[in-house]
Design a protein around this nucleic acid. Structure first.
Lengths: 168, 168
DNA sequence: GAACCTATGTCAGAATGCTGACATGAGTCA
DNA sequence: TGACTCATGTCAGCATTCTGACATAGGTTC
């Protein structure tokens, strides 16, 4: 189990544990979303639009932690199936603000309930203090990781940026 | 930003923050591993083998949080390129214990250094107490999520299981 | 031994997300 | 105005991972 000091001890690595937690959360979410015909990215997109109507494709991509190319494929499907609408032409620049349709809002409702249950389950057994500790600690990790980007720019960083949006 | 109480407030959701942190960590790792011709799963596989020589395909899959089918594809490539070896036939059952070759070990060394730097960067600014808090809290989340599996079995759960290994 | 269940390795096909690339619109600066 | 930079939307191709399915090995129970 433990090792000779050469590698990274996975049993003691916070990075590994973070990945494990995230994997468990994703599995749990996929499990409850599948019966609703959604995956996590799909749900994230709808939830983002419910809270911030008019987000653009690129903004949604950053919020869902995928590339804008991936989000574009998803948005085209959601638009085709009537869950969201986008203007045919941009009013300013190239940005196409996206809106949830009533159908999309209705679809989101059930998904939100399912996801909320998963999140409640995840937080079971944690005190208020632990939850706020978790919040602060995760924020610290994110901040530190972004700070050290090798190709860091001095440009203002959009909220919830991951760096991935620069790859496309 | 905030909303009317209907959805999940992403700005206050620990699940969303967990996903953001994991995404940031993955991005940072991919960034340093790409110049070495590796991705995160690739690296995880080698690191697991360094610490627990002789792991089977399925065990590696669980440890790297992918399906055994995905790990199988990766192992075939690693074997073809001379990073790992597997016996042609199983000595017992169908399990094929995998071993790192000297080439694989050498390849892993540089990757480990790169990944270690990322992890150190992630933990920058966190006290010892915060790190042990983070450890305990993440473990709690993982435990709670697994406990609530809808298709939970009473079978002994392998260490670091995610539930995903049951999908194939 | 037979029935049953679980786990494993593997093949095949599909879904999902990524990288690369291009054109375009807006802002900055000289 | 023109050059430059940056962000956006989008197309095309590729990489990775997943789901579904099958045969098989080991263990358990009767």
């Amino acid at each position: 189990m433990s090792q000779d000091g050469v590698g990274i001890d996975l049993d003691r690595s916070l990075g590994y544990l973070l990945k494990e937690a995230s994997s468990a959360l994703r599995s749990a979410m996929e499990e409850v979303l599948r019966p609703l015909g959604m995956n996590v990215t799909h749900y994230s997109c709808l939830e983002l639009l419910a809270q911030r109507p008019g987000l653009s494709n690129s903004e949604l991509a950053r919020g869902a932690f995928v590339t804008r190319q991936s989000m574009n494929v998803l948005l085209q499907a959601l638009e085709r199936d009537g869950y969201v609408t986008r203007p045919a032409e941009a009013r300013v620049g190239k940005v196409l603000p996206t809106q949830l349709t009533p159908l999309g809002r209705q679809s989101l409702e059930r998904a939100t309930a399912a996801v909320r249950a998963v999140e409640v389950r995840m937080l079971a057994g944690m005190t208020e203090t632990e939850q706020s500790d978790a919040f602060r600690i995760l924020r610290s990790m994110i901040h530190s990781l972004h700070d050290g980007d090798h190709d860091a720019r001095l440009a203002p960083r959009p909220s919830s940026a991951t760096g991935r949006q620069y790859t496309g």
